[in-house]
C-alpha cells in the first residue's frame, strides 16, 4: 500500500482488518458497505442491518433476490446460517443498548473531538432526512468513519469543529481516509498511517493539531 492515496477498496480492506474477530458490526450506506467484501467467514463477524436482521449475507443475485429481504439501503441481500430477524424497536434497542461493537459510517465532516456530521448539509432547500444515522452514531460502541480526507472543493473534512449540522457528539474513534488513518481520543488526533503524503504535509493541509500515533505514521 505504498505510493499514492488509497482507493475506496483499499480503505475498505483496512477498515475490515481492524474490526476485531467475532464483532457484531453495522456497515452504513454507501462506501462502508464495501467493507463486507473483506470480512472472511472464519473471522466470525456478524453483520447487523438496522431494518431488522443479524447475519446478513452478500448482495442477492439472480434467483436469490427477494423483495422481503433487503438491507438498510433497500438493496436485496441474502441471509447466512444463524441469521435472526426482529422488529425495528428491537433493532435499535440493540444498537442504543451498546450491544453493537462497531459501526462504519460515511461522513461530510468529522471534528477533532469526534463530533460527526453526516446527515444534512444544512442547505436551506434541502429536505432533511436522518434515517438511522443518529442512532448508529450514538449507539455503537465504536464508530469508525470512512471518507475521503478532502472534499471535491479541496477543503479538509477532518476539521477543528463541524460546520454542517451534527449527527452525534464526540462519537467517532477512528477515521479512515484515502490519505491516512486517524485515531481520535479526548480531542487529540493521532495519525496512525499516511498514504502518498507525509505527516508534515498533512499537518499543513489540515487545520487540526496532529501527533504521530505510537508505532505509526
Amino acid at each position: 500500500m505504498s505510493g499514492g492515496p488509497l482507493t475506496r477498496e483499499q480503505m475498505a480492506r483496512l477498515v475490515a482488518e481492524d474490526i476485531p474477530a467475532g464483532s457484531y458490526v453495522n456497515l452504513g450506506i454507501g462506501q462502508p458497505t464495501l467493507v463486507s467484501d473483506y470480512l472472511p467467514a472464519e473471522r466470525g463477524i456478524v453483520l447487523h442491518t438496522e431494518n431488522g436482521m443479524l447475519g446478513m449475507g452478500p448482495v442477492a443475485v439472480g434467483d436469490e433476490v427477494d423483495p422481503d429481504l433487503i438491507n438498510a439501503g433497500k438493496v436485496p441481500v441474502t441471509e447466512l446460517p444463524g441469521a435472526a430477524y426482529f422488529h425495528h424497536a428491537d433493532s435499535f434497542a440493540m444498537m442504543r443498548g451498546g450491544h453493537l461493537d462497531v459501526c462504519v459510517l460515511g461522513a461530510f465532516q468529522v471534528a477533532a473531538n469526534g463530533d460527526l456530521a453526516n446527515w444534512h448539509t444544512g442547505a436551506p432547500d434541502a429536505i432533511p432526512a436522518v434515517g438511522g444515522a443518529m442512532d448508529l452514531a450514538t449507539g455503537a460502541r465504536d464508530v469508525y468513519v470512512m471518507m475521503t480526507l478532502f472534499g471535491k472543493d479541496g477543503r479538509p473534512k477532518l476539521v477543528p469543529r463541524c460546520t454542517y449540522p451534527l449527527t452525534g457528539l464526540a462519537c467517532v474513534s477512528r477515521v479512515y481516509t484515502d490519505h491516512g488513518v486517524f485515531l481520535l481520543t479526548g480531542g487529540e488526533v493521532a495519525v496512525q498511517r499516511t498514504f502518498g503524503i507525509t505527516l508534515a504535509e498533512l499537518g499543513r493541509r489540515l487545520d487540526v493539531p496532529l501527533t504521530a500515533a505510537p508505532g505509526g505514521a
Binding site: A93, A129, G131, G132, D135, G139
Partner: peptide
Amino acid sequence: EVVPQGNLAE
C-alpha cells in the same frame, strides 16, 4: 416531522 429511525420505532 423528521425523527431518527430508532426514536421513531421506540
